[in-house]
Simulated assay, not measured.
Amino acid sequence: MSVRSLSATLALSAVLLGAGMPTASARPASYELPGDPVVSGAGGSKYEGIGYDARTQRFYVSETTGGEIHRGSLRSPAAAEWLAGDGTDGRWTARGITVDAHGRVYVAGGPNGIDHPGAPDLWVYDRSGRLLAALRTGVPNAFLNDVVIGPDGAAYFTNSNAAQVFRVAERDGRWAVRTWADASGTIPTQAGFNLGGIVVSADRRALVVAQGNVGKLWRFDLRTGAVSAVGTGGADLVNADGLVRQGDLLWVVRNFSRTLTTLRLSADGRTATLVAATPTDPDRVFTTAKLAQGRLLLVDSKFDEPVGLPPYQVVALTPPGR
């Protein structure tokens, strides 16, 4: 391990060991999430997506077991249920979340429309929690995994069951979804989760998308929809899940690999070089993350547990590689 990687590992370990303790700036190092009770070895909760509203300093977390959406504040140690699940607005599960400049919250439904035929694949809410749209993609077997807001203000959702990206936008009060890019001829669909984490390149001309089951990154040109592989120099990115970009740094949350990989991404999103591969807490499986006031907020999914047991948490840490 390089000196830089070792330093990043030690810094990350220090933050994780201090989880739950107040920081000098009075921001908690972890945030408690609501969850379902465990009764006779059943029940419990699991989580996946996180969105962040910089204007209000609130974050939103999705619960896969029921589809509840929880909301927390950066300075409060406990989040609360914001939107009910268990069929509310046709939502029984939820995955990726993001927030746009207007405070609207976009929720990816994962297999919601597969497990409940006719149910929505995604939802859009305003900051007050009012439902703005509940949409189906019209594509069979669509598993909407993650979502990012593009430079045009539209939301772009990935499909983990096919090499597709969906675009969701509002015009004159009407919301619509369409298949924006279908890269089936370029990206082979493999067993497991295909397209997942998604970010906008620094030059705002492309989307960079993770294919976690094979450990690859793909570049989608925002003007043409053309797709090409991101050159990563052989960096190990298997189990890539959530992506976070700031400037030329790209953080890759590699869930069951229990690693946070830092890459230096070119402005056009065509190439990336390895900066550090930092082990995360071996007792947690982090899925997605958002950058909030200089810290990464990572969701502890509980995906490694047959029944998700409390404590249910979002963990905050200083990003490695900065």
Rank of each mutant, 00 (worst) to 15 (best):
V61A: 04
V61C: 02
S62L: 02
T64Y: 00
R71S: 15
R71M: 15
R71Y: 06
G72H: 06
R75H: 10
S76A: 11
S76D: 14
P77H: 08
P77A: 06
A79W: 05
L83N: 04
L83A: 07
L83M: 12
G85L: 05
G87P: 06
G87D: 07
T88Q: 12
D89M: 00
G90R: 01
A94L: 12
R95L: 13
I97L: 15
T98Y: 01
V99M: 11
D100M: 07
A101M: 03
A101Y: 03
G103V: 13
R104K: 09
V105A: 01
Y106R: 01
A108Y: 01
G109M: 05
G109N: 07
G109W: 03
G110F: 04
G110D: 08
P111E: 10
N112V: 08
N112Y: 03
G113F: 06
G113A: 15
D115G: 14
H116D: 04
P117S: 01
P117V: 00
P117Y: 02
G118V: 10
P120R: 00
D121P: 04
L122M: 15
W123C: 00
V124N: 03
D126Y: 13
R130D: 10
R130S: 13
L131W: 03
L131K: 13
A133C: 10
A133E: 11
L135G: 05
R136W: 01
R136C: 02
V139K: 08
P140W: 11
P140R: 06
A142E: 08
A142Y: 10
A142P: 08
A142M: 09
A142L: 12
F143L: 15
F143D: 11
V147L: 12
V148F: 02
I149Q: 03
P151L: 05
P151C: 06
D152S: 12
D152K: 11
G153E: 08
A155Y: 10
A155H: 12
Y156K: 14
F157N: 05
S160P: 01
A162E: 08
A163I: 03
V165T: 04
R167A: 06
V168S: 01
A169H: 14
E170V: 01
G173T: 07
G173V: 09
G173C: 10
R174N: 09
W175Y: 15
R178H: 09
W180Q: 04
A183F: 14
A183Y: 13
S184C: 02
S184W: 12
G185S: 04
I187T: 02
I187Y: 07
P188H: 09
Q190L: 14
Q190Y: 11
Q190E: 14
Q190I: 03
F193S: 06
N194M: 04
L195R: 04
G196D: 14
G197N: 10
I198S: 04
V199D: 05
V199S: 06
V199Y: 05
V200N: 12
S201Q: 13
